[in-house]
Computed example of a mutant assay.
Amino acid sequence: MDDRATVLWTDGDPSLRRETARAGFVEGVRWDEQSVGTNAIGLALRTGSATTLLGPEHFELCQRDWFCVAVPVPGPTAGVVNIAGPLAEFHPRTQTLAASLAALVASETRAHRFERLERLRMRYAGHLGDRDLLLVDDEGWVVPSSGPSRGVGARIPAPTAGAVLVPGHGRCPAEPVAGGWLVRLRPRTARTPVTARLRLDRGTPCLVVDEAPDPLELTRRQGELLLLLHLAGTSGLWASDVARVLHGGGSPTVSVRAEVSRLRRALGTHASLVDSRPYRIRAGYHLDPGPDWRDSPFVRGSRVAAIRSAPAQPTASDTREDQNDDR
């Protein structure tokens, strides 16, 4: 399944596939919770963690004789691996098998991406010495040796209609080439930050990045994380800081890293908005929650004291050494 719970591919015993097809488990059908109610695929995408549902835990009656085990694909590849079958044949190690398959999908995806970028690098080697050019594939992955690639991260938004927003450079012209794009970076004097507007005027937050046509829907916790990083300023927050603010220090830093990972997954091609070690808004982005965000329904309903009592202007937390690996 992809990041919208759309079935991309199925395999298995032919008789079981016929049964699952009658329940709608076929290529092209969406299995998010809005479409088919509570199911393992939708839950795994929403929570970012492995999910097992047995029989009557499903919403749909036609699924109540089945088990489903769904595991998100790790890394930047958004999607889910799901194993389903008759409830009577469920095995406790099924989740381990699904996790192994998800890791294999991630590994194969990385290998294909490396090969794709390497072909681009060899094909357009003559352009790689130009510091004002960035070479990317059709998904926005940057060929590492092109332009100031360290400054924009491993991925930028996929170019469309001859232009693309590049963090730290603003909107830049993009020329299509075979297998990718050549992006002409704007002169230093013309560079402007990419503005990410965090809308909090309703119960569920969303992020609107510059002139992007569609907002990025976020969970409440993801909106709170972005607000905390906005308030922390350039000094940022370490995982232990975030754990203390969100959970009173009673949560391990690994939980915070998992939450940040889910936030980056939700940001998609703008995952580089959140920098690491410490966590902070990456240079080249401007996060704007709006002038009246402190009076928004979102903030008034937050359980995080640091957000409800935020100062009038963002403050920078003290930078300190921390041995945690905040990635």
Rank of each mutant, 00 (worst) to 15 (best):
R22N: 09
R22T: 08
A23F: 09
A23G: 12
G24V: 04
G24K: 01
F25M: 14
F25T: 09
V26S: 07
V26Q: 04
E27M: 04
E27G: 10
G28L: 13
G28H: 10
V29T: 13
V29M: 11
V29F: 14
R30P: 05
R30H: 12
R30Q: 11
R30C: 11
W31I: 00
W31C: 00
D32V: 02
E33G: 06
E33W: 02
Q34G: 15
Q34R: 12
Q34S: 12
Q34L: 14
S35L: 06
S35D: 10
S35P: 03
V36C: 07
V36H: 05
V36Q: 05
V36A: 08
G37R: 04
G37I: 07
G37A: 09
T38Y: 06
N39G: 12
N39S: 11
N39H: 13
N39V: 12
A40L: 05
A40Y: 01
A40N: 04
I41Y: 09
I41K: 03
G42Q: 00
L43Q: 14
L43S: 15
L43K: 11
L43Y: 14
A44K: 10
L45C: 01
L45P: 02
R46L: 13
R46D: 15
T47Y: 13
T47A: 09
T47N: 13
G48F: 02
G48R: 03
G48Y: 01
S49L: 14
S49E: 13
A50E: 02
A50Y: 00
A50R: 12
T51N: 11
T51G: 06
T51P: 11
T51F: 03
T52Q: 05
T52Y: 02
L53S: 05
L54M: 11
L54Y: 04
L54I: 05
G55F: 03
P56G: 09
P56M: 12
P56R: 15
P56S: 15
P56K: 14
E57D: 14
E57Y: 07
H58C: 06
H58T: 02
H58S: 04
H58F: 04
F59Q: 10
F59I: 00
F59W: 13
E60V: 15
E60F: 14
L61C: 06
C62N: 11
C62A: 11
C62D: 06
Q63L: 15
Q63F: 15
R64N: 05
R64L: 06
D65N: 14
D65H: 15
D65R: 15
D65T: 15
W66K: 09
F67S: 03
F67P: 00
F67E: 02
F67N: 02
F67L: 05
C68I: 06
C68K: 01
C68S: 14
C68R: 02
V69Q: 06
V69S: 08
V69R: 03
A70P: 01
V71F: 03
V71S: 09
P72C: 06
P72V: 03
P72H: 04
V73K: 05
V73M: 10
V73I: 15
V73W: 04
V73T: 12
P74Q: 09
P74H: 01
P76S: 10
T77A: 12
T77I: 06
A78K: 13
A78R: 15
G79S: 08
V80C: 04
V80H: 03
V80F: 04
V80I: 13
V81E: 04
V81Q: 05
N82H: 08
N82C: 12
N82R: 01
